[in-house]
Nucleic acid binder design. Structure first.
Lengths: 349, 349
DNA sequence: CTGAAAGCGCTAACAA
DNA sequence: TTGTTAGCGCTTTCAG
């Protein structure tokens, strides 16, 4: 039961009684061909079950028809969402997407980038983990960055969320609810996104005549465990009154919620938490996680579109910052009327 | 600033002062070559920044070095986990993985399968949505199924979870907690997994002298919304006492929890819910979702390994059923002492 | 409008 | 041990 050789364009040409170049012309939609001949070739193609060999096409044209996506963590639903958008948009243009997860490891990232180069992808979308950026410099293919890291690379387009707007959205709501100086749970210091988030917070504080110096800050990995640990440390410090926390990522926010529960406290009664990402899991948590939602799927789509521009050597490199939206679910206590002057961390000033 | 042509093996050969076949031999690790020559070639390769063109290799060898994965829903963390395992295992063997999400749509699935064939993947891992299986018959490449559907295909290997064991695990616990005849929230009737789940439940019931006919059953899509709707219908029926539910999927279970909350009831006080999958979100829910966890990542890895066997024409087709484990988190009420004889749905007999 | 031929980068026979 | 040559399947000149 040996499987027969898969039909090539020669098989099609023979059956149609034309040369293989004519067959190719008919199948690629070239104009220089009689309708009648094309018809015959097309029929022959479907008769033998012909399917164009993309490897051969790629070889000939120098375009593999594949794109790469390298992101830190496909287990994080936000990134799954981004991948989804990218996948769909790529498929729509008849291209395939190779998806890789770097697990926050620069070495793994470097390996994936090499794999992409060897696979001859036509371009890649990257949310870089590497802080050295050497591997990225060496990448040498059309690429688009997702997130904040692109700022160091003037020659690279990027798509991300509008962090300044997002932070404003979150802080405005916190202030309205009576939390003028929330503690922050941020990502690792090496990440550029952390700096941008913090800068946005500072600006917002300054506008309100609040000294950013009073803000309590903890770092952690962008994971549930990272958020849990950071929250534990935050709570370990002696403090009075209600604690409000703005987490830079929903996974961390959910971890923070668990830490609160572990400590026998109640969210939102004792601790208010707001996240950033808008992953669906936030809806199942109790209380539901109030968060600033990024348009993950759109980001994926736009990144692919930007990559197409890059591949076609469209001159201008773009920075796209997508607007975020607030999703209120109940993890914020309303202290605006009950205790307007209790400020978490105020004891430290 | 035109980017130079990427170096080929000819460039390496010229720099090393050998023929291109010698260069190839040196680079592929053939034995028939002087250590000294190899050394020289390797140095030349890294000097020019040579990277093997996988397209060309694939063309020559008939092996693209790529695998495909088609699953219903990458937004479901369980499937993200499977993809993760498959990705890692494939990378470990130096292969790339093309991941596609069919969104439960047979047409989309068919499109993805065609894309995989055209991309000349060496094989594919599929959790089929299609009930007709025509597209699968036509697929004609080495493949491994994930899940129950493979039972209709004696020629195809499969990897999945041991549903019988999983159901037993869940039901045993339900019985211990005083829920001898839980209602079921199952997937769409078209899915083979549904039948297997139901069969396992029936067997368990018969062993305990419980008439499976008294079980209340609702169907829904394998999504949060599907579970929510199904739970609504379940609760709409007049009944007395505590309601226990075994959902065939964690997303549905979480949706069911939301429906309970929507109805102003409390889980686990009024309703007990147990899920199936073991997605991390279940931990954040309140109460935490008790569930039977599948080893998603392992399933992905084993599927890739099975696919390797398939590609190498290892004769025997295997069916691997991975054991599941119970994760207890608190969505089950313990009625075993308080009200041993109150059985949900018993009023209907 | 169609056919013949070249060549993308690589590996594997076959010769030397 | 090394070099020469052919060819994987396709598209695209260049002739006819």
């Amino acid at each position: 039961m040996s499987r027969n050789r898969r039909p090539t364009i020669v098989d099609v040409a023979e059956l149609a009684g034309v040369s293989k170049s004519t067959a190719a012309r008919a199948l690629t939609g070239s104009t220089n061909i009689t309708d009648e001949t094309r018809e015959r070739v097309v029929r022959a193609a479907s008769a033998v079950g012909y399917e164009r060999n993309h490897l051969a096409v790629g070889m000939r044209s120098g375009r593999s028809g594949m794109l790469g996506l390298v992101m830190p963590d496909i287990a994080n639903p936000f990134w799954a969402d981004v991948a989804r958008g990218a996948q769909d948009r790529a498929a729509q243009a008849g291209m395939s997407l190779l998806v890789f997860s770097s697990d926050w490891d620069p070495d793994v990232e470097a390996t994936h980038l090499q794999t992409l180069r060897r696979a001859r992808v036509d371009g890649a979308i990257i949310n870089p983990v590497s802080d050295s950026f050497d591997d990225l410099d060496r990448f040498g293919l059309p690429c688009v960055f997702i997130g904040s890291s692109a700022e160091r690379f003037p020659d690279v387009s990027s798509v991300g969320s509008d962090i300044a707007q997002a932070v404003r959205l979150g802080l405005d709501r916190l202030v309205q609810m009576g939390h003028p100086a929330p503690a922050l749970i941020l990502g690792p210091k090496s990440r550029l996104a952390r700096a941008r988030f913090l800068r946005a917070v500072h600006e917002h504080c300054v506008e309100r005549d609040v000294d950013p110096g009073i803000l309590d800050i903890e770092d952690g990995e962008y994971t549930v465990e990272g958020g849990r640990e950071a929250m534990k440390r935050l709570m370990a410090r002696a403090r009075v009154g209600h604690l409000a926390v703005f987490a830079a990522n929903d996974m961390m926010a959910l971890g923070a919620m668990m830490a609160v529960r572990d400590a026998g406290l109640d969210c939102p009664r004792d601790v208010s938490i707001i996240g950033f990402d808008g992953i669906p899991s936030g809806e199942f948590a109790w209380p539901g996680l109030t968060t600033v939602a990024k348009p993950g799927r759109d980001i994926g789509e736009r990144a692919v579109e930007g990559l197409f521009d890059e591949i076609e050597h469209k001159p201008e490199h773009r920075r796209i910052y997508m607007p975020c939206r607030l999703i209120e679910r109940g993890s914020l206590a309303d202290l605006s009327t009950h205790a307007p002057k209790r400020i978490a961390g105020a004891g430290r000033v």
